[in-house]
Computed example of a mutant assay.
Amino acid sequence: MAGLAACSRVEDGGGEGGPSILERLREQGFVAVGLANEIPFGFIDDSGEPAGQSPAVAAAVFEELGVPEIQASPVAWDGLIPGLRSNRFDVIAAGMFITPERCEQVAFSEPTATSPEAFLVEEGNPNDITHFTTFAENPDLRLAVLNGSVEQTYAEYFGIPEDQLNLIPDQTTGYELLESGRVDAMSMLSVSHTYLLRERGGPFEVTEAFFPEIDGTEERGWGGLALRQEDTELLEEINRVIAEFKESGRLLELGQEWGFTEADLPDDTTTAELCEG
């Protein structure tokens, strides 16, 4: 994995008889990926390199496909899909959850990881924050969530008023809001909080992890790589390699550095099922 990408990606070729996107990526020697600086799913490390579980998977997959390098563009979470669709990059490598709404805009690979929800809170959890309903029941509490994230959807579903939500562009902003006391918790996946706390420290703790239940069904979200919907041949090749990695144990190896365990690996749930909802 290497380097921040330039602001624009290679011109689309294609058309009748034109080179495929994979052929063009092989020729240029790198694939441009978008990420949102969410530790440990996808972020830029202190040396300016793309890091995290999703970029690691992307780098390994594309290396297998003959593309030796990934170059990353960090953007706000709600800018990932627009950035992909406007050709700013070729792949989203941010651990983005596969949802029916997103499937209408982009094409997802088969799942590569999951993680339950949790909150990052003040040490000792003085406000006894355990669920999104805690905020709906206490109007004095404020919650930071990524703008456009599944956590924002959960917050709205469980009735948290808008004036109690602080919509943030990235994880670092949420941490700083919590540190300054401007919010009482930040909502993200449990593994994200755990890794961030390990890296940055602070008088905080991660609450007990859970999968929200909506309409009687446990919402166990699955993340994957995302591509433009027209890049069907590339998607097929990516899914082929992901299946091989899952079978060989490589998928687990790629995530272990970032705190992912066997419990976070994909089960038999397919992207088609997730897109249907």
Rank of each mutant, 00 (worst) to 15 (best):
G48P: 07
G95F: 13
L65D: 15
A59F: 09
V106Q: 12
R88S: 01
A93Q: 05
D90V: 14
V61Q: 11
D78A: 09
D45M: 00
E64W: 08
V75R: 13
L80C: 01
P55N: 00
V57P: 14
R88V: 10
E38W: 09
Q53W: 13
A56R: 12
C103P: 00
Q105F: 02
A58K: 00
A107Y: 00
A72W: 04
A76F: 09
F41M: 03
G83R: 10
V91T: 10
S109R: 10
P74S: 00
E101M: 05
E101P: 00
P40D: 15
I44M: 10
E110Y: 11
P82K: 06
I81R: 09
I70K: 11
A72K: 07
E49N: 12
D78V: 14
A59W: 03
E101Y: 08
V67M: 05
N87K: 14
A51V: 04
R88H: 05
P50Y: 09
E64A: 03
S73A: 05
P100H: 02
P100S: 01
D46W: 12
P50C: 08
Q53C: 00
G52F: 05
G42P: 07
A76D: 11
Q71C: 10
D45G: 02
I92C: 02
R88I: 15
D46E: 10
V75L: 13
S109L: 02
E38A: 05
T112R: 14
C103F: 05
V57W: 15
C103K: 00
P100W: 07
G66V: 04
F89D: 11
E101G: 00
F62C: 05
Q53D: 01
I81F: 01
Q71V: 12
E64K: 14
S47K: 09
Q71I: 07
R85I: 15
G48N: 08
P111N: 04
A59P: 02
L80R: 02
D78S: 06
R88D: 12
P82C: 06
V61P: 11
E104M: 06
S47I: 04
A58C: 14
I44H: 07
P100C: 02
G52Y: 06
P100K: 01
I81P: 04
S54Q: 06
I98P: 04
E49A: 06
F97W: 05
A107E: 13
V106R: 12
I81V: 12
A60H: 14
S73W: 15
A51H: 02
G83S: 13
R85Q: 13
V106P: 10
D90G: 05
P55S: 03
E110W: 10
E101I: 02
A56K: 08
E63S: 15
A60V: 11
